[in-house]
């Protein structure tokens, strides 16, 4: 019993860290551009296909493929912002929201056109042996996912808190007008945010298809929306919140799949969001914005 719960917890941690990587993108973009980039989930899908093209079609080695995938997604994120969102910087939020949903469909349809609707099989690039600790089996992909996520989060946290670029991101996120007044290049900061968010989404996409080993144009939709839930759960705009929210969501999902019902697990996940928002509308680590006159 204990071993089985532990295994489910570890599974949850694995799924949760992928959600967390994606959720960081949502939360950073929200913090800085004050918008929800609903096409973010589809960047994961693009990352998955990009990796497939590198490895499956052009037969490139793993490491260059991973690097190309991450760079491709970062560029895609920046282009998406420049083309679709930047012209709407001062538009009503609804226009931005609809545009984001439109971009999501655009990316899905583009990959449908290029790659077709039939799922493409993909064999995992992670060949790490599973280990057994105290009777609990931890798969290779889980180990890699956890290590990669932890490293990505440490680097991101250091970047945000210790560098000038990170400080200017925090400054823009707190008060865009004041940031412009001190001379921070807000457009550059927003581009950088989209690049980082999409970079992390690419990593999430790679880890995701190594786990599911199949590609289809809608593969980013569900993890995307769950990561969005994770970001709101943790407190939208808060990076530690997105990390915590993602992990909690993954664990809840894994435990409810194992012990309640596979069919109900998604309903439970979204139910938890409703409850958290009822009790604490700002999310777990979200801050209430104080208006000081």
């Amino acid at each position: 019993m204990f071993a089985s719960i532990m295994e489910q917890l570890i599974n949850g941690l694995r799924t949760g860290s992928i959600y967390a990587l994606i959720a960081i993108g949502y939360t950073m973009v929200y913090g800085i551009a004050k918008m929800i980039n609903f096409a973010h989930g589809d960047v994961i899908m693009v990352g998955a296909y990009a990796l497939y093209v590198c490895i499956g079609v052009y037969k490139l080695p793993v490491l260059p493929s991973v690097i190309i995938t991450c760079i491709f997604c970062s560029v895609l994120g920046v282009v998406l912002e420049k083309v679709a969102y930047k012209p709407l910087r001062n538009a009503p939020p609804l226009a931005v929201l609809i545009t984001a949903i439109g971009m999501s469909y655009l990316l899905q349809s583009a990959s449908l056109l290029i790659f077709g609707a039939t799922p493409i099989p993909f064999s995992s690039i992670i060949n790490v042996k599973s280990i057994v600790v105290g009777g609990i089996t931890i798969s290779g992909i889980t180990i890699v996912t956890l290590i990669v996520t932890i490293i990505a989060m440490i680097i991101l946290t250091l970047f945000i808190n210790k560098t000038k670029a990170g400080a200017s991101m925090r400054a823009v996120s707190e008060d865009r007008g004041a940031a412009e007044l001190v001379g921070i290049n807000v457009n550059k900061t927003i581009s950088m945010t989209f690049a980082i968010g999409s970079f992390l989404a690419a990593i999430a996409g790679i880890l995701f298809i190594c786990q599911y080993e199949s590609l289809k144009p809608t593969l980013g939709a569900l993890p995307g929306i769950k990561a969005f839930v994770a970001a709101v759960l943790g407190g939208i705009g808060s990076i530690p919140g997105a990390m915590v929210g993602g992990v909690i969501l993954g664990i809840i999902e894994s435990l409810s799949k194992a012990y309640i019902s596979t069919q109900l697990s998604d309903a439970i996940v979204f139910g938890v969001l409703v409850v958290v928002l009822l009790v604490k509308p700002t999310g777990l680590l979200g801050k209430i914005k104080k208006e000081k006159v």
Partner: peptide
Amino acid sequence: FANLTVKENLEMGGIT
């Protein structure tokens, strides 16, 4: 910038 330290605020001022 309320969440930045005093020193970071000054550094932001000199960013250009």
